[in-house]
C-alpha cells in the first residue's frame, strides 16, 4: 500500500513533466496536442545518440554517477536533447500547426496532431528500429528504506523525482517573477489584449514550444532511464499524460503537476483493488470521477 503510493509518486514525476508542456499548449494554442508525447520519444532518442557520441569521444564521461546508472555523458546529452526536442517542436509548429491554425479550427488541429504523431513515431522506428534500447545495461538495485512495511526505491527514480521537482520550481520562478513569465501569462489570459500591449504572439508561441519541448525531453530521458527506450514511448505515454492534464485542469501548470502525481498513484494503487488486467482503465475512471465532481478539472477554469 505505502509502496504503491511511493511508486506512484516516482512514476508520476515523469507524467507531470510531460503534462506541463501539454497543458500550456492546450491552453494557449487551444488544441489537444496528441503529438506532444512524441516529443518525449524525440528527447529520449536524441539523448541516446549524444550519449553514445560523448561516451565515444571522451571515454571518462561514460562512468556512472554512483549510486545512479546515469552517466556524465548522458547528463550532458540531456541538455543537447532539450535543445533538439524544443527545435523539433518549433519546426513542427512552423510547418504544420501554424498553417492549420491559420485556416482551420480547433478540431483540425487535434487531427493534424494525430497525423503528426503517426509520422513522427514511425520515422523514429524507421531510423532506430523497433527494438527496445537502454542507456545503461546495468541494473541498479533498489534501496531498502524500511523493512517493515517493506519499502523499496530505486536511486534513479529518486533522482528523476528530485530533478523534476527542481525543474518545476525553476519554471515556477520564471513564470511568476520575470517579464517573460508575465507576457506568457498575459497571452494565455487574453491573446488579443496581450498583442495590443506590445507582446509578440509568434515569439510567445515559440516560447511555449521551447518550454514544452525541453520538459518533454527531460521526461523522455527520465522515462528511458527508469524504464527503457522504444519508438512507442509516445504511444504508451500519451494517455496518462492527457489524463494528468485533464485531471489537473487544462491551463493550470500546478494542476498538471498534481495531475501527474495523481495518475501515477492511481495506476499503482489500482492493482490493490482490481486484477491487473484492468489497469489500463484506471486512469480514466479517475478522470471520470474527478470530472463528475469538478467538470473543469481540479484547477481548471470554465472557459466559454
Amino acid at each position: 500500500m505505502i509502496q504503491s503510493l511511493l511508486d506512484g509518486i516516482l512514476v508520476g514525476s515523469i507524467l507531470s513533466l510531460g503534462a506541463i508542456g501539454l497543458t500550456m499548449a492546450m491552453h494557449m494554442l487551444r488544441f489537444a496536442n496528441f503529438a506532444h508525447a512524441e516529443l518525449l520519444s524525440i528527447g529520449a532518442y536524441a539523448a541516446l545518440v549524444f550519449d553514445g557520441l560523448f561516451s565515444a569521444l571522451f571515454p571518462p564521461l561514460a562512468a556512472a554517477i554512483a549510486p545512479l546508472s546515469l552517466t556524465w555523458a548522458l547528463s550532458l546529452a540531456i541538455i543537447i536533447s532539450m535543445a533538439v526536442t524544443a527545435g523539433s517542436a518549433i519546426l513542427v509548429d512552423r510547418f504544420v500547426f501554424a498553417r492549420v491554425r491559420a485556416i482551420g479550427g480547433e478540431l483540425s488541429m487535434v487531427f493534424a496532431s494525430f497525423g503528426v504523431a503517426l509520422v513522427l513515431r514511425n520515422l523514429i522506428s524507421l531510423i532506430f528500429g523497433l527494438k527496445t534500447q537502454l542507456y545503461s545495461q546495468d541494473i541498479v538495485f533498489a534501496v531498502v528504506i524500511s523493512a517493515d512495511p517493506l519499502l523499496l526505491v530505486k536511486p534513479d527514480q529518486v533522482f528523476a523525482l528530485v530533478a523534476a521537482l527542481v525543474i518545476m520550481l525553476i519554471l515556477h520562478l520564471v513564470l511568476s517573477r520575470t517579464t517573460l513569465g508575465y507576457s506568457l501569462r498575459a497571452v494565455a489570459e487574453n491573446p488579443t489584449l496581450a498583442q495590443v500591449s506590445g507582446i509578440r504572439l509568434s515569439r510567445m508561441i515559440a516560447l511555449i514550444w521551447i518550454i514544452g519541448g525541453g520538459l518533454a525531453a527531460v521526461a523522455g530521458v527520465f522515462y528511458g532511464l527508469t524504464n527503457q527506450i522504444s519508438p512507442v514511448i509516445g504511444r504508451d505515454l500519451v494517455l496518462p499524460i492527457f489524463a494528468a492534464t485533464i485531471v489537473g485542469g487544462i491551463g493550470s501548470i500546478y494542476g498538471a503537476v498534481l495531475g501527474g502525481f495523481l495518475v501515477g498513484i492511481a495506476s499503482n494503487l489500482a492493482l490493490v483493488i482490481l486484477p491487473s488486467g484492468y489497469s489500463p482503465a484506471v486512469p480514466f475512471l479517475i478522470i471520470l470521477a474527478v470530472l463528475l465532481i469538478r467538470p473543469n478539472g481540479l484547477f481548471g477554469e470554465a472557459r466559454e
Binding site: T226, L237, S276, S279
Partner: peptide, 17 residues
C-alpha cells in the same frame, strides 16, 4: 498471477504485486 497489458508505460505496479 499478474496480467501485463501491452503498452503500459511502466510495469512497476504489476511487479510489486
Amino acid at each position: 498471477s499478474v496480467a501485463l497489458n501491452d503498452g503500459a508505460p511502466s510495469y512497476r505496479a504489476e511487479v510489486t504485486e
